[in-house]
Amino acid sequence: MEGKVVFTVFRHDPSAGERPRFVRYEVPYRSGMTVLDGLLYIKERIDHTLAIRYSCRMGICGSCGMKVNGLPRLACFTQVSELGRSIKVEPLPNHPLVRDLVTDFTAFFSKHRAVKPWLIRKDAEEQENPTRQYLQSDQELERYIQFSYCISCGLCYSACPVVTALPEFPGPQALAWLYRFYADSRDQGGRERLRLVDDATGIWRCHFAGSCSQVCPKGVDPALAIQLLRRAVLRG
């Protein structure tokens, strides 16, 4: 693939009082180029005012989530060659907009904290000052290891149709983290954890639309975690 790639980029600064608009940029194609590479080319050579958030450029930090050609994806993890000549870049839906492609994750992370994403020990002293390593078998590890690959990039949260309609819903990421600790043999939270989401705006609002698992760049499969969590809640 030679020549130019057309980037259509969402531009909007809510504080400036201007209208949201799409701006076209032409970027020369390089082999192996990612969407993030293209956006950085725009920022360096064409328009310095473009706001983007990124850090590691290798799909580990989860900072550069954005809607690329209609689906939430990590810009650094998406090859231009798999999208074609015309690429449309928008900010992640379901997160409030800060500017251009940068979104506000405050609500997202507060929901993440609300599910207590840490090991709970019944012994208060042990909780604060652990005295030993907690060993577990391979089988015990298998029960949750998949869900611990989550990098909290927020793609599942922006793909979820329930979050769109009901902002109080914890979202796939928080629920998957909850199950990740619930299923961990070292965790003693037990039913106390389940009670965190067993309410009218909690786990019952998931209807298995599966979009979270479809867009997850790390293969975490939050939809699976949520259904397993619901099974645990249903069994009371």
Binding site: A159, P161, F208, G210, S211, Q214
Partner: peptide, 10 residues
């Protein structure tokens, strides 16, 4: 642009 499961939801 989403998978079958999303269609089933709608």
């Amino acid at each position: 642009r989403y998978s079958l499961e999303r269609w089933s939801y709608t």
